[in-house]
């Protein structure tokens, strides 16, 4: 339980850092950062084999295919020491390692440039295939949005993942049910997502994506001969009541009283 408690505290801090960064930049995607927040925390602070050196070829690989959720990832990369904390106030600014969407060429610890939806999945499949071909043991974790699955290339990549028996690959679907313009089931319904992923050859687990007691065993699970998919049921904007499940908070920035309320609900203080 100590393990879970520590992760919950880390998750709270990363949410506050994310809010700090989005407020300082005046733009960024807070809703999707908060829905994916706990998945990222479980991976970086517990499940993944990371290294002090972001360039270490022997560490596990992480792809944030829903690249717009990068403020949470950037907050983690600073916290684990891959990027100096002085970068915190540079989100989306000129010359920053924290580009509007993750850019591996300028940000240490980013394993794949993303932002164009669907691409992180196909590149992640290539990484897992390449590691297997070279008989290397590192795992590849890819976090994708649910709306992102509208892109056809995701399904090309899923087909390939099972064809090549990529049991070193875990696809985590941040199933927050909301994409930019509407509820996913109203805009372009995914329907029986579990059935779809199973029929594409994945071992599928469906869990509460904010519960570390569920996240840890699911992320640690190793499949044999097939890729693993975790459908993580999440809440867009999780942690701040007025953002939760609200389509308006895909890309919104808190203003006025909303700022103090957000910090209060997250248990932090506003330093702005």
């Amino acid at each position: 339980m100590e393990r879970v408690g520590a992760l919950q505290e880390k998750a709270r801090q990363i949410r506050i850092d994310t809010l700090d960064m989005i407020l300082s930049s005046g733009s960024g995607h807070i809703g999707g950062s908060y829905s994916a927040n706990d998945i990222l925390v479980a991976l970086y602070y517990d499940v993944m084999k990371i290294s002090k050196d972001p360039a270490d070829p022997d560490r596990d690989r992480f792809v944030l295919s829903k690249g717009h959720a990068n403020p949470a990832l950037y907050a983690i990369l600073m916290d684990v020491g891959y990027v100096p904390k002085t970068a915190k106030n540079t989100l989306r600014q000129f010359g920053s390692p924290f580009q509007g969407h993750p850019d591996s060429a300028v940000c240490p610890g980013i394993d794949c440039t993303t932002g164009s939806l669907g691409q992180g999945i196909t590149v992640g499949v290539g990484m897992a295939l390449g590691l297997k071909k070279q008989h290397r043991s590192q795992r590849v974790f890819v976090v994708t949005g649910d709306g992102e699955l509208n892109e056809g290339v995701c399904w090309e990549a899923f087909m390939a993942a099972s064809n090549f028996e990529l049991d070193n690959l875990t696809i985590i679907i941040d199933r927050n049910m909301i994409q930019l313009g509407n509820n996913t089931e109203k805009l372009m319904k995914l329907g029986d997502l579990r059935g779809k992923m199973e029929s594409f050859g994945f071992m599928v687990d469906e869990i509460d994506g904010h519960d570390f007691n569920a996240l840890l065993p699911a992320l640690e699970k190793k499949t044999v001969g097939k890729p693993h998919c975790i459908i993580a049921r999440t809440v867009k904007g999780k942690g701040v009541s007025y953002m939760e499940n609200n389509v308006a908070w895909h890309g919104g920035v808190p203003k006025g009283d909303q700022i103090a309320q957000a910090y209060a609900e997250l248990g932090g203080t506003y330093n702005g």
């Binding site: 070829p57 690989r61 394993d111 794949c112 669907g118 691409q119 999945i121 196909t122 590149v123 992640g124 499949v125 290539g126 990484m127 897992a128 295939l129 390449g130 590691l131 071909k133 070279q134 290397r136 056809g152 290339v153 090309e156 990549a157 087909m159 390939a160 064809n163």
Partner: peptide, 26 residues
């Protein structure tokens, strides 16, 4: 044959998988 990968009729995935291979040193 062991260094040949056929991704099927899927050109987006062809390029994406190749980018992933390159990212792990191939």
């Amino acid at each position: 044959p062991e260094r040949y990968i056929d991704v099927g009729i899927a050109e987006q995935n062809l390029v994406g998988i190749s980018a992933g291979l390159a990212r792990v040193g191939i």
